[in-house]
């Protein structure tokens, strides 16, 4: 019978803590860039000008039809040679997950914007607003509220996806676990502890998301996504 011993793992808690911090930092940064970029992609895709709509559609489709890990490898190993810049694991991960989230958010934004009734656009235009004003003042504020659940779901997905960066040696929580497990010769305890750590953080985020969603549903606003 195997005797569990978490003490060696606990001795390296600092490493794991730094890993967790890096995971959260990457998630947060990719989320922020992803939202901004996603809005841009959505507006391009909704545009009536084909030279704007078409490339946006292409980016969205390419990122939806390739596995995240392949994207990450491409940006880490291939992109530096194409662009001629040094790529750190963090930068490669940030670029990959930002664009990938943007492709996802673009569709959420698009669905959100399209879910706003025509009458809202009519009323804004009848007041003399141009398209940008109508979008900023009238349509987006309403659409964003409906998109919140999809955003939160994506944020949680993203946190799980960030584990892929361990494969290009960025020191996230999973990579830290790998290191600790090699130092302590305690893979069972290390990976179990780290799995539970992920579960705690992600489950906590899910519960929070569910509560917010429930509150939104009660305030009578529909959701999309």
């Amino acid at each position: 019978m195997y005797r569990w011993d978490f003490a060696p793992v606990a001795a390296h808690l600092d490493l794991l803590a730094i890993g967790l911090f890096n995971t959260l930092r990457l998630t947060g940064a990719a989320l922020a860039f992803g939202v901004a970029l996603g809005l841009g992609l959505a507006l391009m895709r909704l545009s009536r000008r084909p030279w704007a709509a078409w490339p946006a559609g292409l980016v969205i489709e390419v990122f939806r039809t390739t596995p995240p890990l392949v994207q990450l490898f491409w940006f880490y190993f291939a992109a530096p040679l194409v662009v001629g810049v040094e790529m750190t694991p963090y930068l490669a991960a940030l670029v990959t997950f930002s664009i990938q989230s943007a492709a996802f958010f673009a569709e959420v934004f698009r669905a959100g914007i399209e879910s706003i009734e025509r009458g809202q656009w009519d009323a804004a235009r009848a007041l003399g607003m141009n398209r940008g004003q109508a979008l900023r003042r009238i349509v987006l504020p309403q659409a964003v509220k409906r998109m919140i659940p999809a955003f939160m779901e994506r944020a949680i997905e993203l946190m799980k996806t960030t584990t892929l960066v361990a494969t290009i040696s960025y020191a996230d929580l999973l990579f830290a676990a790998n290191e600790v497990s090699q130092k302590t010769f305690r893979p069972l305890e290390t990976y179990t502890a780290v799995a539970l750590a992920y579960f705690t953080v992600i489950y906590g985020a899910s519960l929070l998301a569910r509560r917010i969603e429930l509150r939104l549903a009660r305030s009578g606003e529909g959701t999309v996504g």
Partner: peptide, 17 residues
């Protein structure tokens, strides 16, 4: 847009924000 600023419109379904 300039014309619409000078013409007010009231809709069947109100279209309040």
């Amino acid at each position: 847009t300039q014309i619409r600023r000078q013409v007010g419109m009231v809709f069947q379904h109100f279209n309040l924000f």
